[in-house]
């Protein structure tokens, strides 16, 4: 491994972005108010990793991505993408990155999807054979054969988004930015997108930074999770780490031989009963699943049991609430 490979793919150093927005002050007078969309963020993202960048609406996710892709110039701080400053070396950076904004399209609306692909081949000057190879592979992986000759405006959202994704990486970028790529998608398309990203990352070591509101995306794809709110990083770690740190409560679901009165086990609380099935919640600080199960077995006949892991959804909701 060379020194270059060890440089982070993406780096932000003390980056802030402030917008001046007009607001009404009285009847006629209009004042300017400053909105700090990104507030002194520093972080580095390793090559070849898939990182989830999440946060509530208005947290500053899209603004960060726009600075990384050269659309916005930071108000202060330094941004590096593949060691380049996107606001200075924008054209050079565009060749190394792929970008998908879930709410925008970069396809030619009135032309068949295939035409968009071939136009992008010219725009990025991809050699013909390489383009064909990529195209064949992506059509297969994203299951696009059926609609690649249909005008984009006639595609379903799910089909279009698969097209957007392919369009963003036909020029072999090493870094991929995805801003809510699964928003509004049906289950099948969502799954196609996720499978594709995993495959792309495995095959080509593409670095992926993605924002999403669907935490199933994060669980499937991301080893690392960065949570931001009010423009600052409030949590950063592996999904397992974050679960470990915040998932303070667990539930044991026990199937008894027959319906019973609520079980009484030290350190637990019965939160639900459904026939012979009971849900016992406990804090990890108080006891362990093994101890709970042992205590239950002394009181009744146990047929089956499962331990519910904390849901990433619940944890993240909890983290958001704590930061408000």
């Amino acid at each position: 491994m060379t020194a270059n490979d060890r440089d982070p793919a993406i780096e932000l150093r003390d980056v802030s972005k402030t917008f001046r927005v007009a607001h009404k002050k009285g009847r006629v007078r209009r004042g300017l108010r400053e909105v700090v969309a990104v507030d002194d963020i520093s972080l580095a993202i390793e090559r070849g990793s898939i990182v989830g960048y999440i946060g509530p609406n208005g947290a500053g996710k899209s603004t960060t991505i726009k600075m990384l892709t050269g659309i916005l110039v930071p108000s202060s701080g330094q941004v590096r993408v593949d060691r380049l400053d996107p606001s200075r070396a924008r054209l050079e950076v565009t060749r190394r990155i792929g970008v998908v904004f879930g709410q925008r399209s970069q396809l030619w609306w009135d032309l068949p999807l295939r035409d968009s692909f071939s136009l992008l081949r010219h725009v990025y000057r991809v050699p013909g054979p390489r383009h064909q190879e990529n195209l064949d592979r992506f059509v297969e992986l994203l299951d696009m054969a059926e609609f690649v000759d249909v005008p984009v405006r006639q595609l379903s959202l799910g089909q279009r988004m698969r097209g957007e994704l392919a369009a963003a990486i036909l020029h072999d970028p090493t870094i991929l930015f995805l801003d809510e790529p699964t928003i509004g998608l049906d289950v099948v398309s969502k799954e196609a997108v996720r499978r594709f990203l995993i495959e792309l990352n495995r095959e080509r070591h593409t670095t992926v930074l993605l924002t999403t509101h669907d935490l199933a995306d994060v669980e499937r794809l991301c080893e690392r999770l960065i949570i931001i709110d009010h423009g600052t990083v409030i949590e950063d770690g592996t999904v397992a780490d974050i679960k470990e740190r915040y998932g303070t409560e667990r539930t044991v679901v026990i199937d008894l031989d027959q319906p019973s009165v609520p079980l009484t086990v030290a350190g637990t609380e019965v939160v639900r009963i459904d026939g012979p099935r009971q849900w016992l919640r406990f804090r990890r600080a108080d006891t362990t699943a093994a101890a709970v199960v042992a205590a239950v077995a002394e009181q009744a006949d146990v047929r089956d049991l499962t331990v519910d892991e904390p849901e990433i959804d619940d944890i993240v909701r909890h983290i958001y609430q704590a930061s408000r």
Partner: peptide, 13 residues
């Protein structure tokens, strides 16, 4: 419309 973004994402002026 915010659609000017796309012009900045391609390797052309």
């Amino acid at each position: 419309a915010g659609t000017f973004d796309q012009f900045l994402l391609r390797p052309l002026g």
